[in-house]
């Protein structure tokens, strides 16, 4: 495999891990968060600074990132999850901006807007692939756990869920923290997939692209989110226009899709082993019938 392709796939995989976190939050709580990049920044800086300042290996940095993300997430989640819709989106945007500005401001430790240099690009494709698959399995199965089912009940009708005795706030917080972990892990991987990181890597545009990917695939379809994540991350690579025109076409496709198919490309559709079996069986029967006819 060419090194170009490998690196494209590594970044795609990292993006997909962040998308999974976003999908969990949006799919299960209906909340739109601009905070995901904040957690990515925490994960990235924990891993990067852990290495450059203290010589900690990647694994330890990743864990530290997760712990910090959980602690920060606990605080941010506690104060923001009581808010609704636009308010929540705004408050989380404020959070990620604050993180970005803290990283810029405390430059003696974080390197400021110059960023952190000298991170070994030691993340390999198999590592990303394994972490992504683990994340996928967790996300896929989360919906059928009690926590997941209750969360869906909350999304559909918060009041009814409350009446049924579900602790709405606690559920939202759990999902928020889980998605923060996904974000943090993606961030740590990103730091070790490049040689350097800077605060502006974790800006508004990245938040938006995560949100748009989930909407593009459909917030009710994991298959959709992953496919959209793959397509929309690879698409700019495939479209060999000038770099600027790629983004124009990319955003244009997104707008058109949102207008003409607002439930996302995939709606509620999911790939499952059973469906595929059914499909093959039906195909078999059809061709058998054709054979008889």
């Amino acid at each position: 495999m060419s090194s170009y392709l490998t690196s494209v796939l590594i970044f795609t995989g990292i993006n997909l891990i962040a998308v999974l976190g976003m999908f969990l939050l949006m799919g299960l709580t209906g909340l739109l968060s601009f905070g995901q990049v904040g957690f990515m920044a925490i994960g990235a800086y924990a891993a990067a600074l852990g290495y450059t300042k203290f010589g900690l290996p990647f694994g330890i940095g990743l864990l530290i990132g997760i712990v910090i993300s959980l602690l920060v997430g606990l605080v941010i989640g506690t104060v923001t999850l009581k808010l609704k819709n636009d308010y929540f989106a705004l408050a989380t945007y404020g959070f990620s901006e604050v993180i970005k500005n803290v990283l810029i401001y405390f430059s003696s430790f974080t390197g400021g807007s110059m960023g952190v240099f000298g991170i070994p690009a030691s993340v390999t494709l198999p590592l990303v692939a394994v972490i992504f698959l683990v994340g996928l399995v967790i996300t896929r199965n989360f919906k059928v756990t009690k926590l997941g089912r209750n969360s869906l009940a909350i999304r559909n009708d918060e009041l009814a869920a409350q009446v049924m005795g579900i602790n709405v706030f606690k559920h939202k917080l759990s999902v928020f923290l889980l998605s923060a972990v996904f974000g943090s892990v993606a961030g740590s991987l990103l730091a070790f997939a490049t040689y350097y990181i800077e605060p502006n890597l974790f800006d508004w545009n990245r938040s938006i692209s995560l949100i748009v990917i989930v909407f593009f695939g459909g917030i009710n379809s994991l298959t959709g989110a992953v496919t959209a994540g793959l397509a929309l991350t690879l698409l700019p690579e495939v479209l060999h226009f000038g770099a600027e025109w790629r983004m124009v076409i990319y955003t244009f496709i997104i707008i058109v899709t949102m207008i003409f198919r607002p439930t996302g490309l995939f709606g509620r559709w999911e790939i499952s082993g059973r469906q595929m079996m059914d499909w093959f069986r039906n195909r078999g029967q059809r061709s058998a019938a054709r054979g008889r006819g």
């Binding site: 938006i208 949100i211 909407f215 983004m247 997104i254 707008i255 949102m258």
Partner: peptide, 20 residues
Amino acid sequence: IYLFVVSIAISMFLQYLMTA
């Protein structure tokens, strides 16, 4: 929320368009 997201996509589109 779709109106919100489309408005964001439109602002990105126009920003990139002018850059291009």
